[in-house]
């Protein structure tokens, strides 16, 4: 358990928002569970994330107007709230991604340089 904790990637403050935006961008409209499953799928490490934690990011993004949630039915005929990227959300994603790339490049350089 202790070593498992160490293997986990700490999600940096604010990166969860970027991850959600990006996932919605590539996958199209998704409900919270779909997003969580997708994140678990692409992560090499187990995400340090209870699925419930997503809700903070979702409400933040919704309040900013970057995503919009609508109630729809799943293939299994259940109701779920589907989130989709809005136009300002797409713009924000591009900006955030660019910022993230710059930061990552800088940190990488710093780490490799020493």
């Amino acid at each position: 358990m202790a070593s498992g904790e160490q293997d986990r990637v700490e999600i940096l403050q604010g990166t969860l928002d970027l991850i959600v935006l990006r996932a919605l961008d590539t996958m199209g409209p998704q409900h919270a569970y779909g997003l969580a499953a997708r994140l678990a799928q692409i992560a090499d490490h187990p995400l340090p994330l209870n699925q419930g934690t997503l809700y903070a990011a979702l409400i933040r993004l919704e309040q900013k107007g970057w995503i919009r949630g609508t109630w729809q039915t799943t293939e299994s005929n259940r109701e779920a709230k589907y989130y989709s990227l809005t136009r300002p959300g797409a713009r924000a994603l591009a900006q955030q991604a660019e910022r993230w790339r710059r930061l990552a490049t800088f940190v990488n350089k710093l780490l490799l340089g020493t």
């Binding site: 969580a36 209870n50 699925q51 419930g52 934690t53 809700y55 903070a56 990011a57 979702l58 409400i59 933040r60 309040q63």
Partner: peptide, 17 residues
């Protein structure tokens, strides 16, 4: 288990909301 504490999640959301 996968979801984590429901009330906790609600609290987190409330804080953000």
């Amino acid at each position: 288990r996968a979801f984590g504490g429901v009330d906790q999640a609600k609290e987190i959301q409330r804080d953000a909301r």
